[in-house]
């Protein structure tokens, strides 16, 4: 196999690493920040389930990205992932809530424009609709869960100490589910652009087999895991204290809401069930876990009466919706030009 594949894949791995650092913090941030769960436990669980999610159910959401722009040359895929990663890195440093999904979508559109490939506007509008739907849905689920949990706790009269134990277990279980949902939904962001140019072959061992795409997703999942272990601890500590000044139970509600939303936008099984019953199915699109978290936090804030709500965060999120894909597309377009003309790389196949 061409060793250049791994050189080009490095940008995807970098994107995966930064996704692991930031998005794992959305799942286990409060649990670790409030010392309900140890970092080591959180990191191990998150890594295992992110990889499982990526390999077992990652194809659904990444398919939509492939439909948006079939990046057919490795160098082009490299630059898409690299532009997305640079945008994410820059936006994070500017304290703007950033979405890896929006960034990679922008980069793919940049590639489409550069390579004169048509952008499927049906798919694009489907993706953009999820950017609004994702935090909205997370908010609605969080409100419902908050009301239900409050009602149950009021009537169940569980001892504070026992509730503490239940909350810990709840945070770990939902964290595992959240990590699985993150892996299945967001692996498309990390590896989606490499799917069409993927040279990896199917492997099988006894009754166990992995397709080339699953192998690619496994590598992406490992990159996310490395991000979780090496960088997310710092982000988790910050998230645990800064964004979510809330109780471990409300943190649990946030994680559940976010995980459900990510899962809804990634599950092919659920899509089939909904379609069989003639119900409108949600598009399988990589969505932003950070925005789902913000939606859920806002939802809980509203359920509590809307006091102490930081509405300026909504402004920042909206700003991110526009700036992230635009910046990423511009960086991708310019970089592709340099990669093709200065470094003589094939960035697209006609």
């Amino acid at each position: 196999m061409d060793y250049m594949f791994f050189v080009f894949l490095s940008s995807g791995l970098f994107l995966g690493w930064s996704l692991g650092a930031n998005d794992a913090a959305n799942i286990f941030g409060t649990a670790v920040g409030t010392k309900m769960v140890r970092f080591k436990t959180a990191a191990i669980i998150a890594s295992i389930f992110v990889i499982l999610g990526a390999v077992c159910s990652g194809s659904g959401a990444s398919k939509t990205l492939v439909e948006l722009g079939a990046v057919n040359a490795l160098a082009g895929a490299f630059m898409c992932a690299f532009s997305a990663a640079v945008t994410v890195y820059w936006m994070v440093n500017s304290s703007i809530p950033v979405s890896t999904s929006q960034s990679i979508v922008g980069a793919i559109i940049g590639w489409n424009i550069y390579s004169n490939k048509p952008t499927d506007y049906t798919i694009l509008s489907k993706i953009i609709s999820t950017w609004i739907l994702c935090p909205l849905l997370a908010g609605i689920i969080a409100i419902l869960l908050y009301i239900l949990t409050r009602y149950l706790l009021k009537h169940a009269k569980i001892h504070l100490l026992r509730l503490d134990s239940y909350t810990r277990i709840g945070l770990i279980l939902t964290g595992a589910f959240g990590a699985y949902a993150l892996g299945s939904n967001n692996i498309g962001n990390v590896m989606g652009v490499f799917v069409d140019a993927n040279p990896l072959q199917n492997v099988s061992w006894h009754n166990f087999s992995l397709s080339g795409t699953q192998l690619l997703f496994l590598i992406g999942g490992l990159a996310i895991s490395v991000g979780i272990f090496t960088r997310s601890h710092k982000v988790m500590r910050v998230i645990g204290k800064k964004i979510m000044v809330m109780t471990p139970i409300t943190a649990w509600i946030v994680v559940v809401s976010q995980s459900i939303v990510l899962f809804l936008f990634a599950s092919q099984g659920l899509e089939q069930i909904l379609q069989q019953h003639n119900l409108p199915a949600l598009p399988l699109v990589p969505v932003s876990s950070s925005q789902a978290v913000i939606g859920a936090v806002m939802g809980i804030g509203l359920a509590k009466g809307g006091h102490n709500m930081r509405w300026d965060i909504l402004g920042k999120v909206s700003l991110g919706w526009i700036t992230t894909p635009v910046i990423s597309a511009i960086i991708c377009f310019i970089s592709l030009f340099f990669l093709e003309n200065v470094f003589n790389q094939t960035v697209y196949l006609p």
Partner: peptide
């Protein structure tokens, strides 16, 4: 390695009774 601490239930039970 995993500090899920299912044993917490026994610890919390005894502490619950101490508080009582």
């Amino acid at each position: 390695m995993f500090h899920v601490k299912i044993s917490l239930f026994s610890k919390t039970k005894s502490l619950e009774s101490k508080i009582d």
